[in-house]
């Protein structure tokens, strides 16, 4: 039920942002449309299986730090890829690297995939057994790639999307 309500609120927010309106009539329409859409998709928005999650306050508090770290990674990664595209930095040993899933839940894997793929320089390819396969623009040291991703998970993601 909580997930259904949060989906309706999210869809209403999208409706209001699309209209760029803060009128209460639009809010009511947004909630009504949101309820219809959420009810129609009810089978698809069931809670994802997963273990124990950190308290909601800790997750909310950690989210801005996580989002900031992702944005920093996106900017730094874009610069790196741009330099390689322009030939200023050499394109050396790109390739697919295995990264252990570790303690990540199903949602944690999805968020890790989203965060690493959004940042230029790494693209999530697939899950293979207990590992994620990532294509990395510089895979000359796969262990360093694994260590960096694990450090990112431990420092920023674990407390928000374990």
């Amino acid at each position: 039920m909580r997930r259904f309500v949060s989906t309706v609120v999210l869809l209403a927010a999208v409706y209001l942002l699309t209209l760029s309106s803060h009128d209460w009539v639009d809010l009511l329409f947004g909630l009504a449309f949101g309820t219809i859409v959420a009810a129609a998709l009810r089978g698809r928005i069931a809670a994802a299986p997963g273990g124990a999650r950190p308290p909601i306050a800790r997750r909310v508090a950690g989210f801005p730090v996580f989002a900031g770290a992702v944005i920093f990674d996106v900017l730094a990664g874009t610069l790196d890829v741009a330099l390689r595209v322009l030939g200023i930095r050499r394109l050396e040993c790109p390739g697919i690297v295995r990264v252990p899933i570790g303690e990540r839940s199903e949602r944690g894997i999805a968020i890790s995939a989203l965060a690493t793929t959004l940042s230029p320089g790494t693209v999530f390819v697939d899950v293979d057994g207990d590992d994620m396969l990532l294509h990395v623009i510089d895979a000359s040291d796969p262990d360093a790639v694994r260590a960096k991703l694990q450090q990112f998970y431990d420092r920023y993601q674990r407390s928000v999307f374990p």
Binding site: L91, E92, C93, P94, G95, I96, V97, R98, V125, D126, D128, L133, A139, S140, P142
Partner: peptide, 10 residues
């Protein structure tokens, strides 16, 4: 993968 020195751990 046609990049020079491509790594494939898959």
């Amino acid at each position: 993968m046609r990049s020079p020195g491509a790594v494939d751990e898959s």
